[in-house]
């Protein structure tokens, strides 16, 4: 009997593993970004040379759903690992897949210096405003007033600081050739995110320089919301602070 995945395989090709048991929670925004990544790799025909460097956190699972080589780096260090890898093996396509905790908390220096070096690698930050895997603690990107496991009365910027705007920190770096913030809050946003991802990947394929995208995604489990509520929150609260935009596009 024909399996449902056979039909899907013809649609998605070889990159996406459709039979792999999914470990993202229901409604998790990672599922959408991971699919977009797989589709982009498939569409560009770069699967066999692609290496994913993943962070610690739920984003670390992303490579399990793709038929690509992967390196699970130490917490926050993926951009440095990718830098060393790309220098030693420029013929490979290398991207990092990290959450907001991995990238904007412990790994911010690694990211910014990788960006500033301007090497042709691609870094993706999946921002759901919480440490999801460890139980919904505050992250540097948690919104003012956001209740988390470690900010029971809501994030107070006077104590915890303000949500960090990561791509904006790279605006003055000439080595960054593609820089964007996208969201997966609804279908049009996901379509835009897919196009943006293609640009960011092509930036590396054309050997132009560093590319970065922040994806604003919901984490129903970490946010303690239903799936629908979390998407609503993503669309209305998160993107109000983290405004989607293509900041730099020098890929032409």
């Amino acid at each position: 009997m024909e399996k449902a995945s056979d039909n899907l395989s013809s649609l998605y090709g070889k990159t996406l593993f459709l039979d792999k048991l999914f470990s993202y929670c229901p409604g998790c925004g990672h599922g959408i970004v991971t699919r977009l990544v797989a589709e982009t790799i498939e569409a560009m025909g770069i699967r066999e040379k692609t290496v994913s460097v993943v962070g610690i956190g739920c984003g670390g699972f992303s490579h399990h759903y793709m038929d690509i080589d992967a390196i699970e780096a130490m917490h926050g260090r993926s951009p440095s690992v990718a830098t060393g890898f790309k220098l030693a093996s420029p013929e490979n396509f290398v991207f990092t897949y990290q959450g907001d905790g991995d990238m904007s908390a412990i790994g911010l220096a690694d990211l910014l210096h990788a960006a500033n070096k301007g090497l042709p690698i691609t870094c993706l930050m999946i921002n759901n405003t919480v440490f999801g895997m460890t139980g919904g603690q505050m992250s540097p990107t948690s919104l003012p007033g956001q209740v988390t496991a470690t900010t029971q009365k809501g994030r107070d910027p006077h104590i915890h600081g303000y949500p960090i705007l990561v791509p904006e920190m790279m605006l003055a770096m000439p080595g960054v050739k593609y820089l964007a913030r996208e969201s997966v809050a609804d279908a049009p946003a996901i379509r835009r995110a897919g196009k943006s991802l293609r640009r960011a990947f092509e930036c590396q394929e054309k050997n132009l320089g560093f590319a970065f995208i922040e994806f604003i995604v919901p984490c129903p489990t970490g946010l303690k919301k239903s799936v629908l509520e979390s998407y609503d929150w993503c669309k209305n609260q998160m993107t109000a602070y983290f405004k989607p935009a293509v900041f730099i596009d020098q890929t032409e």
């Binding site: 390196i71 220098l87 030693a88 093996s89």
Partner: peptide, 16 residues
Amino acid sequence: ELAVANALAGCACAGK
């Protein structure tokens, strides 16, 4: 040195 060690790890992952 954090970045150093991790870039070194990345280089080793490439078999170099």
